[in-house]
Computed example of a mutant assay.
Amino acid sequence: MNQQFKVPKEYIELLDQLFEIERKLETIQESNSIARNINKMKDVFENLNSNSGESSGGLVYHNPIGEAYNETRLDLEASIAGNSTENLFVTEVIKPIIRYRMGGSTLIIRKGVVVVESKN
């Protein structure tokens, strides 16, 4: 999928806000009703092109917290915390990875911005 794909910056901002709400929701007890609303909004973004006659496609975000990191990873911009650069893992997500997904293909719309640390 090598074609350029323009996404309105307002969509990116909305996805960032959904991500922040979802993160804050993890600390709240009895969060089921809010989680349902977030999932419905995420579903709208995932199916943006469903009604436009094109093949189904939409925007999704991914939270890479806890994932391994190395310099060959193309979907993240990382700041390294600490002195070691070996055995790095994502310890904080400032902005999630945003992708456009159509069929079985995905295109990175925006790299995630993260902090990584060594697990040594």
Rank of each mutant, 00 (worst) to 15 (best):
M1T: 08
M1N: 06
M1I: 08
N2L: 11
Q3F: 10
Q4L: 09
F5T: 04
F5W: 05
F5H: 06
F5P: 00
V7W: 01
K9M: 09
K9I: 14
K9Y: 06
Y11H: 15
E13W: 01
L14S: 03
L14E: 06
L15D: 01
L15Y: 01
L15W: 02
D16P: 03
F19N: 04
I21F: 12
E22W: 00
E22A: 10
E22Y: 02
E22C: 00
R23W: 02
R23N: 13
K24L: 13
L25K: 09
E26A: 08
I28S: 05
I28F: 12
I28K: 13
Q29P: 14
E30H: 09
S31C: 06
S33R: 08
S33N: 06
S33L: 13
I34G: 02
I34M: 13
R36L: 09
M41A: 13
M41E: 03
K42V: 00
D43G: 02
D43H: 12
D43Y: 11
V44Y: 09
F45T: 01
E46N: 06
L48P: 04
N49M: 09
N51G: 13
G53E: 03
G53C: 08
E54R: 07
L59N: 04
V60I: 10
Y61F: 12
H62V: 14
P64I: 05
I65K: 12
G66C: 06
G66A: 05
N70V: 08
T72Y: 08
L74V: 14
D75V: 06
L76P: 12
E77A: 10
A78E: 11
S79V: 15
A81M: 10
A81W: 09
G82R: 05
N83E: 11
N83Y: 05
S84V: 09
S84F: 11
S84A: 11
T85I: 14
T85D: 14
E86V: 09
E86Q: 15
E86M: 05
N87Y: 13
N87K: 15
F89R: 11
V90W: 07
T91H: 01
E92V: 02
E92N: 08
E92L: 02
I94L: 11
I94P: 00
K95R: 12
P96N: 02
I97P: 01
I97M: 01
I97F: 01
I97L: 04
I98E: 02
I98D: 01
Y100E: 02
Y100R: 03
R101Q: 09
R101E: 05
R101S: 01
R101L: 01
S105K: 11
L107M: 13
I109C: 05
I109T: 06
I109R: 02
R110S: 10
R110Y: 02
K111S: 14
V113N: 14
V113R: 15
V114I: 15
V114H: 03
V116S: 04
V116H: 04
V116M: 08
E117V: 03
E117N: 10
S118A: 10
S118W: 13
K119P: 03
K119G: 15
N120K: 12
